[in-house]
Amino acid sequence: MTERSEGVESTAVTGRPCGDGGAPKSTRDWFGAALVEIAREYDHVVVVNCDLAKATRTLPFKEEFPDRFFECGIAEANAIGVAAGLAQEGFRPFVASFGHFLTGKFLEIFQTVGLNDAGVVLVGTHAGLAIGRDGPTQMGLRDLALMRTLPNVGVFQPADGAETWQMMAHLATDRRPAYLRLCRQPLPEAHADGYRFRFGVPPVLRAGADVAVFAMGGTVPVAVEAADRLAADGLAPTVVNVSSLPVDRAAVERLAGGHRQVLVVEDHYAVGGLADELARIVLGLPDRPRFDVLAVPDYGQAGPPEDLYRRYRLDAEGIAAHIAALLQEAPA
């Protein structure tokens, strides 16, 4: 069987992120490295693959643990069922495919994982616009909207290598169903040394005033860069990393309530994702701030990733300009 294409392959990565100034890597790369390491420690960790081992970075796992690697081919619905069965037998299966393909089998996820409370980790790679020229037919842009509807499924999206490793350690020892959303594009490390992931707790990466910017996954380092650009003009937005859902309600209320405006930046459709999660909280505040969203308002387009992020104003320049405009519009 010929493996499905994902366009140009990036180089593989090994080793933990250590803040040593090395080249940025994607969270799918960090996932692949962490998966092998946790499998060495936990023999109940297995992988269910959908003919995308190179693209999802599960190939190193297959090479080291061939007896714990199950190839289902181009059949995500079958893979989800196989993974649910393995989970019910005490294994911790990671079933990996493009997020667009995997969550496209939502009925099977609902029936076999959700309703059975099966401890499957659904790994959706190639989140957002970064798949580029392959276009909307392969872009993971509506996966959060789907997975958020399942009340017992936690959603995880790391913003860098350090957070990916810590999430993987959490997921290996947890037994609850989960969706792990991963990026294709390289990301710089966004967290300071000593950061510790805690499910549902959104860390503040830049403390500021007036505007609280909530981001997730690949948009987090970009939002940090935008805030750093604005600092030269004397503007200091707060940047918050919402790395897992459901998010802690009290933490969001505290952060949003301390600002005049809230901006949600996400590499996802404008409807159904992080913005909707936060709006349900912010709109309940007695003195609620202005609420704004910067996301993908259509089906997405095909083109070089950098052009797409520029088009949708989800690059550092676009986010910075949007924040500056919000501050100019705000009453004194």
Rank of each mutant, 00 (worst) to 15 (best):
M1H: 04
T2W: 00
E3Y: 02
E6I: 02
V8G: 00
S10D: 00
T11C: 00
T11N: 00
V13W: 08
V13E: 01
T14I: 01
G15T: 03
C18D: 13
C18N: 11
K25M: 11
T27E: 15
W30Q: 14
W30G: 06
G32K: 12
L35P: 09
E37W: 07
E41C: 11
D43L: 10
V45W: 13
C50Q: 11
C50L: 10
L52N: 04
K54T: 02
L59C: 00
E63N: 14
E64G: 07
F65E: 12
R68I: 07
F69H: 11
F70N: 13
F70I: 12
E71P: 10
E76P: 08
A77W: 02
V82D: 07
A84L: 05
G85Q: 03
L86K: 06
R92D: 12
F94E: 04
T103N: 03
G104I: 04
K105M: 14
L107T: 06
T112A: 09
V113W: 09
D117K: 14
D117R: 15
G124P: 08
A127K: 08
L129Y: 03
I131G: 06
G132T: 03
D134H: 02
T137N: 01
Q138L: 00
M139F: 00
M139W: 00
L141S: 00
A145H: 01
A145K: 01
L146N: 00
P151C: 01
N152C: 03
N152D: 06
V153M: 11
Q157N: 14
P158T: 11
A159N: 13
D160F: 12
G161A: 12
A162W: 11
E163N: 12
W165C: 14
Q166D: 11
H170M: 05
L171R: 12
D174L: 08
R176G: 14
P177E: 09
A178Q: 02
Y179Q: 03
L180S: 10
R181E: 02
R184F: 09
P186F: 08
E189K: 11
A190L: 10
H191D: 06
Y195C: 09
P202Y: 01
P203D: 05
P203C: 12
P203F: 06
V204E: 02
A207L: 04
G208S: 07
G217A: 05
T219S: 05
P221N: 05
V222E: 06
A223I: 07
E225Q: 06
R229E: 10
A232Y: 09
D233A: 15
D233F: 14
G234T: 13
L235G: 11
V240P: 15
V242W: 13
V242H: 15
A256F: 04
R260V: 04
Q261C: 03
V262L: 00
V262W: 00
V265P: 04
G272I: 02
L274S: 04
E277Y: 09
L278N: 05
L283W: 08
D298H: 03
D298C: 01
G300V: 04
G303Y: 08
P304C: 07
P304E: 14
P305S: 04
P305A: 12
P305G: 03
E306L: 04
L308E: 07
L308H: 09
D315E: 11
E317K: 10
I319P: 09
I319D: 11
A320C: 14
A321S: 14
A325L: 15
Q328C: 13
E329W: 15
A330N: 15
